[in-house]
């Protein structure tokens, strides 16, 4: 699908050196293959997680890790395919706060969960 990725040079501002990774990209297709494949993969990821859990396919800790990885894959898919993550008029500035928000979110949840693993009665 890379042939449909286009680099847009905005007339009033071109990419500053070092900010090339924020260069916006746009996709356009004659038939919505990207959307359809995105939908199919989202169903595959969901039912993979569901089947693994219903069948108790592995040890609980590993299973939790695997289904969280599947959910992260699903989030990446939604962001990349459906949310047009890299589109913008100028530099795609939303990528930076998005990375920060992911860092805060998973830091918050991960550390809260981690501290509960000690079960020392502090809670």
């Amino acid at each position: 699908m890379s042939d449909s990725l286009q680099q847009h040079e905005s007339s009033e501002e071109s990419m500053e050196p070092g900010l090339e990774f924020l260069a916006p990209k746009f996709e356009s297709e004659a038939f919505p293959w990207t959307q359809i494949m995105g939908y199919v993969f989202s169903l595959v990821l969901t039912f993979a997680a569901l089947l693994l859990v219903i069948n108790h396919a592995m040890a609980p800790t590993l299973l939790l890790a695997v289904i969280i990885v599947l959910a992260l894959g699903q989030a990446g898919l939604q962001l990349g395919v459906f949310m047009h993550l890299r589109e913008s008029r100028g530099p795609a500035w939303q990528l930076l706060p998005l990375a920060l928000a992911f860092f805060i979110a998973f830091g918050l949840i991960g550390v809260s969960y981690w501290i509960m693993l000690f079960k020392t009665g502090v809670s």
Partner: peptide, 14 residues
């Protein structure tokens, strides 16, 4: 909004 949901997930995890 994502950070709001993250804090609610953290509460649920605990």
């Amino acid at each position: 909004d994502m950070i709001i949901f993250a804090s609610l997930f953290a509460v649920f995890a605990v």
